[in-house]
């Protein structure tokens, strides 16, 4: 098949994106293992700045593992191992001279299930800035407000900042988690199936928010909802059993996929 030839080519030369947005992440020949179980195989791709990059694929194909490499949060999992290169703005991400904690300051993350701390709404957002000693007192209050506004949550919670975050609805909790991540002023936001636990209305709100955040942040979103990828993303990568089958502009991938497996997946023939 031509498709597989094309794919092999794209392994040695990471596909360049059509526009000239500078790359934030350049991933080359990434491989990941949990113990002896290999879950990412020779993945190469480029994540452009201030765009939304979607990773799609059936469940268990390694989407979470892939984006969790980008803030090195996989380091915390015993038995996790990776090889290959991830360049973050030109620097090797696993350079021993770089403290993974500072990477997480630049690369925020939002998880599949909303996971606010069981504390007040205010405390949730203020936690990151406090850890990093970014702001104090009045300035911290202002900063919390600013972060909640960015996450389009301020109007809904401004009168109950002291209330426990768990009293919010699922969609509000997820936007709170986005506000919490934005509060440390990252450059990148990783979102691992951020809407899979939400109803369609809450999902719509989050998608709207993502399009807005794109103005200032680089977003990487994992989703197994193809319509969602099609709606919000500029670039899409299709991952299957740990292999990046195809990566390119979202429109192209969904209209004229270059690989028969991509076509099979987006037309719903498997996964």
């Amino acid at each position: 098949m031509y498709a597989s030839v094309l794919r092999n080519d794209s392994i040695s030369n990471p596909p360049s994106t059509a526009h000239d947005s500078p790359s934030v992440f350049a991933i080359q020949g990434l491989e990941c293992w949990y113990g002896t179980h290999q879950v990412i195989r020779k993945v190469s791709l480029i994540i452009p700045e201030r765009r939304i990059t979607a990773i799609i694929g059936p469940s268990g194909c390694g989407k979470s593992t892939l984006i969790r490499c980008l803030n090195r949060i996989n380091d915390l999992i015993p038995g996790f191992r990776m090889s290959g290169h991830i360049l973050f703005k030109g620097r090797e991400l696993d350079d021993p001279a770089i403290d993974p904690l500072t990477i997480r300051l630049k690369v925020g993350m939002v998880f599949q299930k909303p996971n606010p701390f069981p504390k007040s709404i205010y405390e949730n957002v203020a936690y990151g800035p406090r850890i990093w000693e970014l702001h104090r007192d009045r300035r911290l209050d202002d900063h919390v407000e600013k972060s909640l506004r960015k996450a389009a949550l301020w109007d809904e919670v401004k009168d109950k900042l002291g209330q426990n975050a768990l009293t919010l609805s699922g969609g509000q909790q997820q936007r709170l988690c986005i506000a919490r991540a934005l509060a440390v002023e990252p450059e990148v936001l990783l979102l691992d199936e951020p809407c899979s636990a939400l109803d369609p209305i809450a999902t719509g709100k989050i998608e709207e928010l993502l399009l807005e955040l794109k103005q200032r942040y680089t977003l990487v979103i994992v989703t197994h909802n193809m319509q969602q990828a099609a709606r919000v993303s500029d670039e899409t990568g299709f991952l299957l059993m740990g292999e990046l089958i195809e990566f390119g502009p979202t429109e192209k991938l969904f209209t004229t996929p270059g690989d028969s497996r991509t076509e099979a997946y987006i037309t719903g023939r498997f996964g």
Binding site: R104, G108, M109, F111, Y127, I131, C177, R180
Partner: peptide
């Protein structure tokens, strides 16, 4: 203490000790 709480803290760049002290121990 749910691992999702720990992950939320680590993802903000909190150190292990900060995560334990501010999130895990209170819970």
């Amino acid at each position: 203490v749910p691992s999702s709480i720990r992950e939320a803290s680590y993802a903000l760049g909190a150190s292990r000790w900060q995560t334990i002290w501010h999130q895990v121990l209170p819970l």
